[in-house]
Design a protein around this nucleic acid. Sequence first.
DNA 1: TTCGCTTTCGCAAATCACTGCAATAACGGT
DNA 2: ACCGTTATTGCAGTGATTTGCGAAAGCGAA
Lengths: 125, 125
Amino acid sequence: MTPQRLSVLDIVAARTGHIGADEVWNLAKEQHPYVDLATIYRTLQLLKRVGVVTEVIIGNKLHFELADQHNRHNHMVCSTCDGVQTLSPDYLAEFSQRLEQEFGFTPDLDNITIGGLCSSCQPPG
Amino acid sequence: MTPQRLSVLDIVAARTGHIGADEVWNLAKEQHPYVDLATIYRTLQLLKRVGVVTEVIIGNKLHFELADQHNRHNHMVCSTCDGVQTLSPDYLAEFSQRLEQEFGFTPDLDNITIGGLCSSCQPPG
DNA sequence: TTCGCTTTCGCAAATCACTGCAATAACGGT
DNA sequence: ACCGTTATTGCAGTGATTTGCGAAAGCGAA
């Protein structure tokens, strides 16, 4: 664990909810002015790999949030307004079990994001 | 419909299964040497918008395949080997209905891809 | 502390997807 | 066939993310 990595973790942890990679960078620069964006990305991928943060794809940008074991959830992202709603993993449990039983495929539940249209962005008619 | 677009469609249609944008480009250049990659992307997005092709994200590259109404399916992509399995949309129907009823959220079923580990890439133990 | 090995960092450049814009090609009306 | 309108193309450039690589930092053993 290096100072740069600690900063990244602190920044993600300080936020309740998700934060974009560019925002992490801007905040990290306040403490480490020369930190490179590549380091931010590498660190975020590392934290994701070890299970400390989860990744949410919003629009076409990567966002991250602390992986709180006591409040695990998935995300529904509206492709029109980029709004995010959280979803209890219970909704996916049965589906996930079927995939595992019938195909031996283990879905990566932590990183499943459901795209679609939120209630406010439904097409008229 | 222009010659370039017809080429793109032909190429995607000729393939049983998915094909990467770069592959489409390489094949399209055989018929239209000056076709630009941007045209490929724009055409693929167009074909997707009108429902003729569907998009599958494999690794972090876009792939496309013909949207066969008689053989609609989703995809399970292994994050280790990038292998792709198809999945009947029946598996998602119930889940999708719950989201719609309880949250008013309409998932974009055609473009849902499930990431995870396939049976061959399960961690040992 | 110093040496030596390993890991990480910063920088630059590559990658993939997308967009703005001027030039060009397609299409309909005459 | 000709002209004007509209849509599409090629090119260049942008944004987000990733990768290669030499320099620097971290860390354990002596």
